[in-house]
Simulated assay, not measured.
Amino acid sequence: MKMKPVFYVCCLVFLFACKGKRKDSAAGQETRTSGSMKILVDESVAPIVQQQIDIFSLDYPNAHIIPVVRPEEKLLPAFLNDTIRVIVLPRLLTKEEEKYYQQRNIRINSSRFAVDGIALITNKDNTDSTITVKELVDALQGKASNKKFVFDNVYSSTFQYLKTLAKVSQLPASGVFAKENSDQVIHLVSKNKDYIGILGVNWLSDRNLKMKDALSTVKLMGVKNFPGKVGDDQFYKPTQNNLISGNYPLLRNVNIIDCEGTDGLGTGFAVWLRSQRGQLVVLKSNLAPHKMMPRVLNYEK
């Protein structure tokens, strides 16, 4: 008989716990570490973002982030039309693009979490392994060149970056071509030593297992900047050290831009990207992290 009150109390506690759990589940409230959302991801930096999502999901199993990967110009309509409010770009929004959210009094939170480089690759059988930024710009401006260049996509952020650099609005009539994605660029260069491929350096990682054989037949080119610019003293490859030091001429920041207007999963993922764990993922991907994390050494007595 003495056990009955204890039994009833335990039952009540269990019922209230279950009720509270059902209520939270039904509400489906999104937090910094739980919920489901889509994010827009520029194709040229898709590998590093997917790696980050994979590790974030391991840390927070109740968080489900679905990347929508497309070239930059194909992403922006969905972002500016308020279809998806979180985007990863290797640049910041322009003043005109910011107006779409400012007019609705929605705060724009932009965070850099990595430094990327635009890589130039050539076939390993090509004896020429260096190029200047001036040579690249001249070709984009339609000036005579004995080199042929191929981009990842005519709508890509890579092409937008170099169009701005060369101050042109479109591809020249000859000498510069575009494929549909970065893997196609790697495949073309691996089979043809007459082309120089232009793509985000993240696609050249050994994690790109699908292109392992093709990657074994291409090499990075050294790039020298315009006189008077950083990186004008020698030819630099987009190695991690040169991205970190800033010596590689064709650098760009990778940013997550969150316009959710709430302290939800987008905010949580953005904060995590700049955390020690997120920055270690960047470091292992051979890109440059937003900031170098201090090493903690444990000494056993």
Rank of each mutant, 00 (worst) to 15 (best):
F56M: 03
T83K: 10
L76D: 01
P67S: 04
K38T: 14
L75E: 02
I53F: 06
V68Y: 11
K74Q: 11
P90T: 04
V41A: 03
P47Y: 00
E73Y: 11
E73L: 11
K74G: 08
E30F: 13
K74Y: 06
V49K: 00
S34A: 15
Y60H: 08
N62F: 04
V88C: 06
S44D: 08
T33Y: 15
S34V: 13
V86E: 02
Q50V: 08
G28T: 15
I48W: 01
Q51I: 01
S34E: 14
S36H: 12
I55L: 08
L92V: 10
T33P: 15
R85C: 13
L93I: 11
L75S: 02
N81T: 11
R32Q: 15
F56D: 02
I48P: 08
R32T: 10
T83C: 11
F56V: 04
T94F: 02
N62Y: 10
G28L: 13
A63R: 10
T33N: 14
H64M: 13
I39P: 00
I65D: 00
N62P: 05
E43T: 05
I53T: 02
Q50C: 07
E73C: 06
L80S: 10
V41L: 02
V49R: 00
N81F: 10
V88S: 03
N62C: 05
T33L: 10
D54L: 06
I48F: 05
E72Y: 01
T94W: 04
I84R: 07
E43R: 07
R85F: 13
S36W: 06
P77V: 03
T83G: 10
E73G: 07
G28E: 13
V88A: 06
A78V: 03
M37W: 07
V45Y: 01
L92P: 08
E72K: 03
S36L: 13
I55F: 07
G35E: 00
S44T: 08
I53R: 02
D59I: 08
L58G: 09
K95I: 04
P77F: 06
E72R: 02
L93S: 05
S34F: 14
D54Y: 07
S44Q: 04
E30M: 15
V69D: 03
A63M: 12
V86M: 04
V68W: 12
G28H: 13
V69P: 05
F79P: 01
Q50R: 09
T94D: 08
V68A: 03
E72H: 02
P61N: 09
I84Y: 15
T33C: 13
V69Y: 02
L75P: 00
V86F: 05
V88T: 13
Q29L: 14
L93H: 01
G35K: 00
E72N: 06
L76S: 06
S57D: 05
I66Q: 14
P90C: 05
E30K: 14
T33A: 05
S44R: 01
E30L: 14
S44H: 02
Q50K: 11
